[in-house]
Design a binder for these strands. Sequence first.
DNA 1: CAGCCTCGAGTTCT
DNA 2: CTCGAGGCTG
Length: 725
Amino acid sequence: MPPDVDEASPQARIERLRAELERHNHAYYVLDAPTVPDAEYDRLFLALQQLEAAHPEHASPDSPTRRVGGAVASGFGQVRHALPMLSLQNAFTDDDVRGFDRRVREAAAAAELDAAALRYCAELKFDGLAISLRYEDGRFVQGATRGDGAVGEDVTANLRTVRAIPLRLDGPAPRRLEVRGEVLMFRRDFERMNDAQRVRGDKPFVNPRNAAAGSLRQLDPALTAQRPLRFFAYGLGEVSDDVAVPGSHAALLDWFGALGLPVGQHRCTVPDVEGLLAFYRDIGARRATLPYDIDGVVYKVDQRDWHEAIGFVARAPRFALAHKFPAEEALTELLDIDVQVGRTGVLTPVARLRPVFVGGVTVTNATLHNEDELARKDLMIGDTVIVRRAGDVIPEVVRSVPEARPADARRFLMPAHCPVCGSAAMREEGEVAWRCVGGLYCKAQRKQALLHFAQRRAMDIDGLGEKIVEQLVERDLVQTPADLYRLDAAVLSGLDRMGDRSAANLAAAIAASREVALERFVFALGIRHVGEEVARILAAEFGGLDETLDADWAGLIEAKAAAQKHNARARPKGEPLLPVPLEGVGPEIMRAIQAFAAEPHNREVIAGLRAAGVEPTRPARRSNVGAASEGGGTGHVSAPSPDGVLSGRIIVVTGTLPGMARDEAEALIRKHGGSATGSVSKRTSFVLAGENPGSKIAKATELGIPVMDLEQFLRMIGRDGQENS
DNA sequence: CAGCCTCGAGTTCT
DNA sequence: CTCGAGGCTG
């Protein structure tokens, strides 16, 4: 008998060790019930590693040892999701949820489904990162982040190291299966990891969510392997039809569990909206006792075969809803109130807070808007205040806690003088804002004016940011926008944090901005009340800079008032309506332009810009009646291209459009004769929604205004992602 | 004059 | 995103 006869072959021992380690993984990460001490696990792991090293012919990509990470990726490839990863509609109030229930029932009834049989499955909304996992013949082959919903990043190598993700599925698995779920970190694991980070002198992460996101995006999978990531499955992507998939969402989750995928334990199936709200309240009360962070709960119509019929609103399914918990609030101390000076000289009080962790980030500043707001909130320096992250991002001081007010709390008074230049501060009758009267003498205003001039939607000078402007103004290198064009790379490279390369780039960007469309230039001037829209109206009306500034503004103000008065009163029949000049531009705005044009300093700046070679180009399409507008040039209202598909339509863009900037979309709307506005109202024709749309979707649904996604929109204007129409 | 509808301006943190 | 304020309508 050969000596190794009762000892299994290396291959068999490798297989046995792999199976045993996976079993322990499963027990620990999926069932949350460890079966062996950590030391024992490590011993088995080491044994397997040694065996595999000695017998490389038995290596396998789905061995547990591979979870420590393979080759370093040079970047992440892109993965197009076979089915898009959708975002959910958000709800914050009980009424939002009732509205959701009503719409679901209406849609179900419209699809001739028995609405009485409707059931909902409610589960947790994990606060982590959405990912998609592809399994082929039960083996994990690819994992990707959500990305923009259509295309994500390939993080397969990193996900292989996540032990809660089975590399092989149990039982009969479909040939192809895409599982959607969330990668996250448990709070206790997060704390432990952060302690270790601190010991090593590395920067700790701010919260479990950021830690999970950062870990998943490590280029070196070996680093990811050291991070205690978890995973929960909650949804289905593409699946081949060789295995029957359960017909209800609850059963789908059970099936995932049977395949060895971790699923959330807190869930229930209920028949009506009251059941959903009860679940929400129950979970809300137990939120702090859960081992991980959640930001709400999710409701889905349990009948999966109804989903298609109930349909979608834009990119969001109508059969599912994310019911979020209210913004987290925290107490902190109001250390001081500073005053910032804006471009127009407005003095804005800003709260300096004792750094406080709220809603996932550390908040140190918050705007207090204005004097009245301060008074309403009854704030005193030294007060304990309640801070909230409103609308998901912007921190807000909700109110003070007067009973905790210390004896030495100080009341804050708006300063009588500008904190930057010392000029007088004034509050105009009927306005809330205090303003520094220093104008461009004030360095703060000068800096802001330059930043405004350079911004993307104005002159689009890339690289001229806050840090650079700060230095240019402080060193008196630049007084007015015209001075920018006298800078050269040699001067620029003398600035802090400015190498030769960036200096050359900036110089080139400044030079390139000499050619600019008239409306951008008018906007860049920063005339009070003249934003992008008004600048566009002026450019279309006057066609040139001189025509705009030299127009007879006093006459226009009068003419407009007279025309409006004439048109408003009952006219004898037959008497025609008088044309109203400059629709959307009233007396206040006209006076502001008049004042700007009359100021010699402004004329000098413009002359300087021209001398430097800045010459705004006239609007390209200024209809073919050009010769008709001589002199003052009134009466001609720029008509949207009448043949445009969107002619006469008012469109609101919200959310992040996949693969298109918001500006681009708005330009596209205008190009096709529509107008793009910022708020949803009765007059809105439709809402173009992208990912993570805000409150505007809710408003649109409430008003019964159609919502469409980018694809539908592009099809509408006859551009299926291709150039030209 | 009141009640919309828009636009302009300011703002936080990663 | 939100608020303030200008423009327009009834």
